[in-house]
Amino acid sequence: MSKKEIRFTSTGDPVRQKPLSLRIWQNRGFYFMFLPVFAFVLIMYYWPMLGIRFSFFEYKASGRGAMTWVGLQHFQTMFLNPIKAPAFWTAFKNTIELSVVKLLITTFASVIVSIFLNEMQNIHAKKALQTVIYLPHFMSWAVVASIFSLFLSPSSTGLVNGILQSTGVLKHGEYVYFLASSVWWKPIYYLINIWKETGWGTIIFLATLSGINPELYEAADIDGASRGQKIWYVTVPALANTIITVLILNLAKVMNLFESVFVLYNTAVYDVSDVISTYIYRQTFATMNPDYGFSTAVGLFKSLVGCVLVLVCNWASKKTRGRGII
């Protein structure tokens, strides 16, 4: 435990701190203003967390709202039950894989697009392009899924299959059911994520790029650097810290994957697409009398993994940036 720091006045006497109650009373106006925020935090952030207790109970609709203590039974079922555990571990593996790969490729794509945008000389074209690539971010996943389901439809009206047929890649009448193929589902999922989120991801990188000292480029010009060399030796190093920061901040959110998968997956691709949140959803809502205790236990495990990732990221952030994220 660190020793309490003692502060001194200019005359060398130790500063005598007033009692806490007196300090609160003297600053009562501020504390009064803080009350609504404090209440909001308690109600909106901490009160719902009380629900984690369900994971230690059997909690079914048929029980008239009563709960039966089962201890760690739900966790045992989740990890070891021969019926439920395989699907759970598949979902866990898919969650990590889909999230991490998505994070890496969307970040990489955002960096590339940011650099290209930064190199554009025509300001009007640059702004127009920025607007166009930001737009998909504001579309809901339900709309995005509908659009891509139409494009990728295996029926004779599907745009992509139509193009593949007309260009001879596929024979007439042949098709690829992209969203129902275990081979194609993941690449398509990543592609849709790149389309939707790359534009939005460029904002933070463009902000960093605008802050690069122009003298660095001038110096590079004097040294005879080509455009490519300026990007590689000036722009990319300037972005490195931001890239790491973005990756670290997003790494903490890898377990939060639901909507984008839910609207795009189907029974044919559960093995490659089912994630923990969709697994919880089916365990809860695809059955008539679900045990909410089990669903909560799976959710709690997901939160714990997320919490560990936040702590790891905080540690990584301290190492790389000199300060933590929490």
Binding site: I83, T267, R282, A286, T287, M288, P290, D291
Partner: peptide, 15 residues
């Protein structure tokens, strides 16, 4: 208790 798991298994076979 296992309705969701059984439905998943059947759907996997059909698909």
């Amino acid at each position: 208790d296992y309705a969701a798991d059984i439905a998943d298994a059947k759907n996997a076979v059909i698909a």
